[in-house]
Simulated scan of single mutants.
Amino acid sequence: MRPTGDDVAGLIARSSPAIRRRDAETLTALMQEITGREPHTWGTIIGFGSVHYRYPTGTEGDSGVLSFAPRKAATTIYLFDGVDAHADDLASLGPHTTGVGCLYIKDLEQIDAKVLTRILKRSLAWVEAGGTEQVQLTVTG
């Protein structure tokens, strides 16, 4: 995937319900502070920086170093290092659900902000370190 160049504020404004817009504004500011990078749209995803990934299967592509999507059902936060790497923190995060590499949050105000910040910083450090043999990452921006 490549950055689409769409307006980040426009993507946030089109998000619904209203709680997704509020949470998207908060996450945009938080991820920008953590990464030191400007937000860009990757379709309906808001990403910060750029990383090229490659799996042992040969699958490869590009994505934001940290990214999230304000989906209707919940905000999706993408974690390259997977949710298992954050099991201890997830236990004290607050109401959420997970997928293999996704964290789903319905209301950011019910989440412990310090715990979420710690998860995002640790995930960013993992990406910037290049991932693992299973997931090879090269930060490009």
Rank of each mutant, 00 (worst) to 15 (best):
D88C: 02
V127L: 04
L103I: 09
H52E: 14
R37Q: 14
R54E: 02
V83R: 09
I111G: 04
F68S: 00
A85I: 05
L137T: 03
G101I: 01
S67K: 01
R118F: 09
T28Q: 05
D88E: 14
G47D: 06
L66S: 00
K121Q: 13
G82H: 06
G101S: 12
H86S: 01
E60G: 11
A113R: 14
A129E: 06
E60C: 10
V51N: 05
S123R: 10
T59R: 15
R54K: 04
V51D: 03
A29W: 01
S50I: 05
F68A: 00
Q32I: 00
G58S: 13
A113G: 04
T44R: 14
P56T: 02
T59P: 02
D107A: 13
H86D: 02
G43S: 08
L90Y: 11
T57F: 02
K106C: 12
G82D: 07
L93N: 06
G131C: 13
M31Q: 03
Y78W: 11
A87E: 11
T57A: 14
A85K: 11
E133Y: 08
S123W: 08
D84Y: 04
V139M: 11
T44H: 09
Y104R: 14
R54F: 00
I34L: 08
G49K: 11
Y78I: 08
I45R: 08
L120N: 07
R118Y: 06
R54W: 00
L66E: 00
A91P: 03
C102G: 08
I46S: 05
P70W: 01
F80Q: 10
T75P: 05
L66M: 01
T59G: 12
R122I: 00
E33D: 14
I45H: 08
G82V: 06
D88T: 14
D62P: 02
I77F: 08
A91H: 10
G82Q: 06
